[in-house]
């Protein structure tokens, strides 16, 4: 990812917004001693993580290490069995009201976009603002158009998802999540279902978003993206957080053997 423009973004405003929040906030996401099992299978083991507002975290690790499961716990698409997850001062428990509150503040982008195929792009974006946030339709549409412009596809607003390319669909999915004006965005391998030529258009949108001070958790193997925008890179293996470091240290000076091994493999090609 040798994109000179994105390198600039990193050094200027990106870092400052994160540091501005430091100190006064105990962390918009707090995960404490969290465990999760699928049946008898211990997927996530004693995870601890605090994310400050405006921080950008990249999570990487080998396949099956529990990255998806982890970020899906943060908006309760998966249930954890032990420990605490506190998002924006609301603890995720069985209480359905807590879950709803958290989901309203947390947007998610999926590997396979998961757009609603029976609704147009604009309707996809307006659905939740209208029905969950009770925004009047006109207002919701105007705001959706702004986000569609931000992801550079306002001209596709009246098409159906099935008529768009993968990259366009993923950008719609990002816009749809942003329309809820979330405080946190989760990305689960947003580019890994895309053809190489479309990856950049999605990453550019994500980099722009990172520049705007959004709190982001991204599961991705795009190491260029991690280097450019991440405040911290987290390496997971076997359901554990093995290593956690700022990108520069993470890539140039990994501490753990497993991290070194992983980086060797992923940077080999």
């Amino acid at each position: 990812m040798g994109n000179p423009m994105t390198e600039q973004t990193q050094t200027s405003e990106v870092k400052s917004s994160a540091q501005g929040e430091t100190g006064k906030n105990p962390g918009i996401i707090r995960v404490e001693g969290m465990h999760k099992w699928y049946g008898d299978f211990h997927v996530l083991k004693d995870l601890n993580l605090t994310v400050k507002q405006g921080e950008r975290i990249v999570i990487c690790g080998p396949s099956g290490s529990g990255k998806s499961t982890f970020i899906r716990c943060i908006n309760r698409l998966e249930e954890h069995q032990q420990g605490k997850i506190i998002v924006d001062n609301v603890e995720l428990t069985d209480d359905i009201r807590h879950i709803d509150t958290v989901r309203r503040e947390v947007g998610m982008v999926f590997q396979h976009f998961n757009l609603f195929p029976h609704l147009t792009v604009l309707e996809n974006c307006c659905l939740s603002p209208i029905w969950v946030r009770k925004v009047p339709r006109k207002e919701a549409e105007a705001s959706a158009m702004e986000y569609l412009e931000r992801v550079k596809i306002p001209d596709q607003a009246h098409k159906f998802p099935g008529q768009l390319s993968g990259g366009q669909q993923q950008r719609v999915a990002i816009a749809r999540a942003l329309c809820m004006k979330p405080k946190i965005m989760l990305f689960d391998e947003p580019t890994s279902a895309l053809d190489p030529e479309m990856i950049k258009e999605v990453l550019d949108v994500m980099i722009e978003l990172a520049g705007s001070g959004m709190t982001m958790l991204c599961v991705t193997h795009e190491m260029g993206f991690a280097k450019t925008v991440a405040d911290r890179v987290i390496f997971m293996d076997g359901g554990e957080i093995v290593e956690e470091a700022p990108p520069h240290d993470f890539f140039s000076n990994p501490q753990e053997a497993r991290t070194q091994q992983f980086l060797k493999q992923i940077l080999a090609h």
């Binding site: 908006n75 698409l77 709803d100 989901r103 309203r104 947390v106 947007g107 998610m108 999926f110 998961n114 757009l115 609603f116 659905l127 939740s128 029905w131 969950v132 749809r176 999540a177 809820m180």
Partner: peptide, 9 residues
């Protein structure tokens, strides 16, 4: 999942 994530009940 997408509907859940958007907070639709």
């Amino acid at each position: 999942e997408a509907a859940d994530a958007l907070g639709l009940g």
